[in-house]
Design a protein around this nucleic acid. Sequence first.
DNA 1: TGGGGTTAT
DNA 2: ATAACCC
Length: 462
Amino acid sequence: LSQRKTGLGGSLPALRAPRPSHGKSASAGSAAGRVVVHIDLDCFYAQVEMIRNPELRDKPLGVQQKYIVVTCNYEARKRGVKKMMSVKDAKDKCPQLVLVNGEDLTPYRETSYKVTELLGEFCPLVERLGFDENFVDITEIVEKRLNQLQQSGWSRVGVSGHVYNHQAVNLHDATHVRLVIGSQIAEELRGAIYTRLGLTGCAGVASNKFLSKLVSGTFKPNQQTLLLPESCQDLIRSLDHIQKVPGIGYKTTQRLEMLGVRNVCDLQAFPPAVLEKELGVSAAQRIQKLSYGEDDSPVTPSGPPQSFSDEDSFKKCSSEVEVKEKIEELLPNLVARIHRDGRQPHTIRLTIRQFSTDKWFSRESRQCALPPHLSQKFGKESSNIISPLVDILMKLFRKMIDVDVPFHLTLLSVCFSNLKDLPSSKKGSIGFYLKQMSPPSGSGKREVENVSQGEGSASWDQ
DNA sequence: TGGGGTTAT
DNA sequence: ATAACCC
């Protein structure tokens, strides 16, 4: 199986999203494609900070981690601040820039899951990509709308938002009609995210994940774009460099460039056999299909997280005592997060990054199974699990680093994974996001008070 | 460049 | 355990 979750390629026919099999779907019938929406929140961390402190609303705002402005609001962008700019360059560009520290991801993580949960109220097929993006397969919802429309006599079928390339919609084309209905649903999803959580974002509507993601960025803050199949090639050819293809990263770009492949058209035309020899059959076929806009990877529900980690970077850490102190700083927060989740981790991992001039890349890690009695301890509070965990992590550290030889670390990270539900024993272990959905009808609780009008979630079923 | 995440090999 | 990908 290639890439089921993160990647945009690869497919597994047996796990594919079910075809809309409703009897009355008329013309297009079994040939109907999917309708996928990609939702991408605008400068997410900055938005969260502006909600936490509304006085920041109309000021240029950057979110800082260490020496980097990792993201910023649009006021700051107008003044030339860019994502991942150094604090120094950002302040040069924009002396009035207000900076908030964003090294603690807790507020972003919590808000992020609220968005995913909200989307989950509309539709079960929601896949996260990072903290600020979600894919939603709305094929089934579109089918329902189509049936309702056929009964209530085709009233208002119009596009919501932009159409890529200003392509004309053909309402006699069943695929067009489905995608247009998809654009209306996308508008409602964005509306719900705004009225319930106070967050704005972009959406892209298309027939698969890859295209929905590509098209969502066409009109940038707080707008949405629909891609009709006839404009697919134009969208793809608008990518001037292959690394802008989601799914083609740094390493693959390097290899492709050695083969003389520079843009997407080069990749489309490249001999498949040669590509397979360079990248392997699986990756070659996947990215070449992507170059044509083909992607049959399903929207795979993310569910609760597969791992919990906490990391810190620094200029220098060069003694065992310092390492232990850093680890003791990281652990309490992490342990508390896992406790809140309710599941038990069975694997622990320590990751380090060693100083070096050119290879900023390489990290090393050692992991081991947690002793069962320690896994158990995550269920209950009070007892001190920190100390035994520190001991284990220091052993892992010594497996990587000979402490008798000088070392220079620039990052430490602790990760718990292999999470298992506890044997259905104690209280509210349902935890994270399988928790029950909104109570009966009526308006749910307001997370954000001041965001006024709009439909909450109207009548979605039936 | 940060502080996270995921899957494939 | 590492390597690749994503944000």
